[in-house]
């Protein structure tokens, strides 16, 4: 059953069409990987879904709620949490306060929110950093902080923008473990990710965007064979006319790691 439905979303910035007639559905409990080269419109789509941008056309439905026209805070209160590509922790607040602010949506009392926030910090293994200021954390730690902050609003759907971007290689397994544990708890996830090895391994399904349009939608094993996707990432010279298995597998991996 569909948890989130994106229906014909078009978003323009002046003459630039960032999203053009994008449609896909996210099933409850699955991890959907959203991929595409830089400028494909992935983060724009997140901003449309969560109410930061109003699309020119289309509708987004979440558990029978229409999302277009709602403010970001209203979207969050319906049960959608998100992180940002360019990290946005509350820098002059401590790690614990960052998460407390989010937890206060359900627990107005600071002491209760504090207790709840600590649990989320333990979950992302940041509890020992609780009294540090958010601006003093490393990139990997800030990613985990944003994750804890998003989770503290008790979402049913999480939109994660670039989980491993800018994070050193050793930290990646920790982040992937976290995502796996989120799924175990029944959360639905949409993940934007440039590291192809990562996204192919964690996703149940992949939606690929290129120049604002959906060019592939399906299980990872099928999407990698998609000719337009290989073209989008590597240019058409990499596409071997028939079959194309060698080019697609190796080529995609190479492209992903180049970006990570």
């Amino acid at each position: 059953m569909a948890c989130l439905e994106v229906q014909g979303i078009t978003k323009r910035f002046g003459g630039l069409v960032a999203n053009h007639n994008i449609s896909f559905a996210v099933r409850r409990g699955e991890i959907l990987g959203l991929i595409g080269p830089n400028g494909a419109g992935k983060s724009t789509l997140f901003d449309v879904i969560t109410g930061y941008y109003r699309p020119e056309a289309g509708e987004v439905r979440f558990d029978n709620h229409r999302l277009v026209g709602r403010r970001p805070d209203q979207v969050n209160r319906l049960g959608i949490g998100r992180t940002f590509q360019k990290l946005r922790p509350f820098n002059a607040m401590t790690v614990l306060e960052n998460v407390m602010v989010a937890a206060m949506q359900h627990r107005a009392d600071p002491l209760a929110a504090r207790g709840e926030a600590l649990r989320y910090l333990e979950f992302v293994e940041l509890a020992d950093k609780r009294d540090s200021f958010a601006r003093d954390l490393s990139t990997g730690q800030r990613k985990r902080l944003e994750l804890a902050r998003a989770m503290a609003t008790r979402p049913r759907l999480l939109l994660l923008d670039e989980v491993t971007g800018g994070v050193d290689q050793r930290t990646i397994p920790t982040l992937l473990q976290l995502i796996g544990r989120l799924r175990e708890q029944g959360l639905t996830l949409v993940v934007i990710e440039h590291n192809m090895r990562v996204i192919m391994s964690i996703s149940d399904r992949i939606v690929a965007l290129h120049l604002g349009e959906v060019i592939a939608d399906g299980p990872p094993s099928e999407v990698v064979k998609e000719r337009r996707l290989i073209e989008a990432y590597l240019g058409d010279t990499f596409v071997v006319p028939s079959g194309g298995a060698r080019a697609s597998g190796d080529g995609l991996r190479g492209a992903g790691e180049g970006r990570a």
């Binding site: 969560t50 970001p72 940002f84 922790p89 602010v101 009392d109 609003t153």
Partner: peptide, 22 residues
């Protein structure tokens, strides 16, 4: 909560919205 919300808004209004603060 008021004070926490105020400070979150001061730090980053967009991020504050993302955790449900009007």
């Amino acid at each position: 909560r008021l004070g926490y919300y105020f400070r979150a808004i001061r730090e980053d209004p967009e991020a504050a919205q993302s955790v449900g603060i009007p």
